[in-house]
Amino acid sequence: MSAANDFDTTLAAAKQGADWAWTAIYDEFAPGLLRFITSQGAAEPSDCLGECFVQVVRNLPGFTGDQAAFRAWLFLLARNRVVDEWRAARRRPSSPTDDVERLHEARHQTSAADAGVGEDQSVQQILAALPPDHRAVITLRVLDGFSVEETAQIIGKSAGAVRVIQHRAIKRLKNALARRTQ
């Protein structure tokens, strides 16, 4: 969906329930949303992505806007799903066996064949060490290419707050990377 007309046509068809339109929307936006959800530390990113698209189906008839507004709206929905998951996790105590399983997977996942995965995990570990708002801003601004204003809308903060959070997050990332290379 590169052209605005293609997006408008696809969106209108999705509002009418056309399967091809939903497939096109999912194929276009799901990879970026999944990356964002994963970077935010969701325990079950694919479930969270599914819940996000369920919300899209429910709320699409009321959506108005262009492709950029739709993309920002999707990321807002994804952010809300992640926050809901964080809240639910705080209400549920984790069992010690879950922690042992995660520790075992983390220690035994790297092999010569998946060395690139290890690098990706290092990036994920560094991002995971950031506070949630810092992680969200860095992911949205750097990886997903949203403007300051769009990022502010997605995370529910002012544009000035986003700039400050981004500055602080970059400073933390620099310090974390400096410690890793020493």
Score class of each variant (00 low, 15 high):
118 G>A: 15
43 A>Y: 10
121 Q>N: 13
69 A>C: 03
119 E>V: 12
102 R>L: 11
111 S>N: 15
46 S>M: 05
109 Q>K: 03
114 D>S: 11
120 D>T: 13
21 A>V: 11
89 A>K: 08
72 A>Q: 10
13 A>K: 09
59 N>H: 07
97 T>S: 14
15 K>M: 08
37 I>T: 04
63 F>S: 04
117 V>L: 12
78 A>W: 01
60 L>I: 08
92 R>Y: 00
35 R>S: 11
14 A>P: 04
21 A>R: 06
28 E>D: 15
109 Q>G: 05
41 G>I: 07
25 I>P: 10
93 P>S: 09
77 L>K: 00
23 T>C: 06
27 D>T: 15
105 E>W: 02
33 L>Y: 00
14 A>F: 05
72 A>R: 11
17 G>L: 09
91 R>N: 03
50 G>S: 09
17 G>T: 12
70 F>K: 02
58 R>D: 02
79 R>Y: 12
66 D>K: 06
90 R>T: 12
113 A>Y: 11
38 T>R: 15
121 Q>K: 14
102 R>M: 07
19 D>R: 15
35 R>H: 12
45 P>W: 04
121 Q>P: 03
85 E>N: 01
61 P>T: 04
82 V>M: 03
47 D>M: 06
74 L>D: 01
120 D>Y: 10
59 N>Q: 12
78 A>F: 05
109 Q>V: 09
38 T>V: 06
20 W>Q: 10
84 D>A: 02
97 T>K: 13
62 G>A: 13
80 N>M: 05
83 V>L: 00
66 D>H: 08
